[in-house]
């Protein structure tokens, strides 16, 4: 088997191994299914509740993508603004950091007061929790333009807009796409938190109800569904990143 095949196989082997260990551990130590269900019983629960799970998963995905889309547009815009103006950067940074430090679960009740229970709090929480890394990364990409590159263009009479579009934007793209991987996972956390507290639909809501019923297998089935969706969304953004900014990933450092 070549190194490449081994690497392609590794995630599957490790994942299956993890669940195998879990199953064996539960059986050997005779853990009550009320405390920690075995993967097999979780699998059974997933099958049993498949219609509910897929319905609510779909809802959660929707909320996440909507919030994420707003975060991308807003984060990109604010990042460009911060990266191109030192005054705006200095002025807004403490505000941004302070806002980012607020646990977003604390914001959900406020959103409910404003917009009521429904899709609004979920989308907004997803947005609020995920725009920060995008802003910081885009701003960093712009702020680290080599001064020589700027000099070359300025000596040709380039405007600030020229420098932004010819150098700033393309240069910050690897940072931007890198931040998307973090942001999509955060957005997902945000929408689930909001659903848990203030929605009639979504995996978060399903979990809240399962937990109230002490339906531990369904609780764990929801967790697994969340994890799978998270991996899928991460993989999609990682793929997009690779397609868009292949020029930035030429290091052989992590190749093997």
């Amino acid at each position: 088997m070549t190194q490449k095949q081994k690497i392609a196989l590794a995630p599957w082997v490790f994942t299956i191994g993890f669940f195998l260990l879990w199953e064996i551990g539960c059986r050997v130590f005779n853990v009550s299914s009320f405390v920690l269900p075995t993967p097999l019983s979780i699998g059974k629960a997933m099958w049993e509740y498949r219609t509910q799970l897929s319905f609510h998963s779909f809802h959660t995905l929707w909320m996440t993508f909507a919030g994420f889309a707003i975060a991308v547009v807003f984060g990109l815009g604010l990042g460009l603004l911060l990266g191109s103006s030192r005054i705006v950067h200095a002025g807004t940074y403490p505000l941004l950091v302070g806002f980012n430090a607020i646990p977003k679960v604390a914001v959900v009740p406020i959103l409910v007061i404003w917009f009521g229970v429904g899709w609004m709090p979920a989308v907004l929480t997803a947005f609020l929790i995920s725009f920060f890394p995008i802003v910081v990364n885009v701003a960093t990409g712009l702020a680290t333009i080599e001064p020589e590159t700027e000099d070359v263009l300025k000596a040709l009479g380039a405007s600030k807009y020229d420098i932004m579009t010819k150098v700033g934007l393309p240069r910050s793209m690897p940072y931007f796409f890198g931040s998307l991987k973090v942001a999509i996972t955060l957005a997902y956390v945000g929408s689930v938190i909001a659903e848990y507290n203030a929605s009639k639909y979504g995996i978060g809501n399903l979990m809240a109800r399962a937990s109230a019923d002490f339906n531990v297998p369904l609780l764990f089935a929801s967790l697994i569904a969340l994890a799978v969706l998270g991996v899928v969304m991460y993989a999609i953004t990682a793929w997009i990143e690779k397609r868009m900014t292949g020029w930035a990933q030429r290091s052989g450092f992590a190749a093997n």
Binding site: E146, E148, D151, A155, L156, G157, V167, R171, M173, W247
Partner: peptide, 17 residues
Amino acid sequence: PVKMAGMAFQNPVMLPW
């Protein structure tokens, strides 16, 4: 800025994309 100068530095600063 003079708008007509060509410049080259010790560092070639080519745009990698």
